Simulated assay, not measured.
Amino acid sequence: MARKELTEKQFMVQRFSKTALRALHILGITGAGGGILLHVPQEQWLLYWIMAMSTGSAMMLWEIVRDWRWLIQLKGVLTLVKLGLLGLFIPFAAYKPELLIAIVLLSVVVSHGPAGLRHFSIVHGRRIGGRKEVKG
């Protein structure tokens, strides 16, 4: 069954929602990242951490629901790698700053890399298209 095109109002609501979610995510990353890099006590940046993790999870869910192929494109795969690096915060707590820097650098590649890289499928070995994205 083919999906119908979004109305202009639906498009604007989705775009604003995604932009707002991304803005909150960046705010959370900035607060938590500053706390980690500057060795601030965790209780002072924990709310930012929770904000970053919850908005990041929501954005990931948004992408998977929109198009499951996100999971096999480099933008999805690298996001899962970032989650793996986050998981290393526990066994390698002394290396949190270095892990955070690696996560931020991967984020730049995922967000600002060329489309041919972001849409490259690790399963197909080539760029694959997906459903039309709502930028934000």
Rank of each mutant, 00 (worst) to 15 (best):
A58C: 05
G28D: 13
Q73G: 14
I64M: 08
R66H: 14
A2L: 15
L74C: 03
W49T: 02
I64H: 02
W62L: 06
R15G: 01
Q10C: 13
G76M: 00
W45K: 01
I64P: 09
S57T: 11
L74W: 00
L38F: 14
K18F: 08
V77P: 12
W45R: 08
K4A: 10
R66N: 07
L80G: 11
T19F: 15
V65H: 00
T55Q: 10
T7I: 08
W70L: 02
S54H: 03
R15S: 14
D67L: 02
A23F: 14
V81S: 03
M60Q: 06
Q44K: 11
L21D: 08
W62K: 02
V81D: 04
K18R: 15
Y48C: 12
T7C: 08
V13R: 09
W62R: 15
K9G: 02
G33A: 05
F11G: 03
W68Q: 07
E63S: 08
I50N: 07
A23I: 13
Q14E: 14
F16K: 13
L74G: 05
M12F: 11
V81Q: 06
S57A: 15
K4F: 01
A32K: 08
K4W: 06
A23R: 09
A52P: 11
M53P: 04
A2E: 15
V65L: 11
I72N: 06
R15Q: 15
E5L: 15
M12A: 14
T30H: 04
L47D: 12
R22T: 13
T55Y: 05
V13N: 03
Q10E: 15
V40Y: 14
M60F: 14
S17T: 07
A23D: 06
G31M: 02
I36W: 01
M53C: 12
I36Y: 01
E8Q: 12
L61H: 05
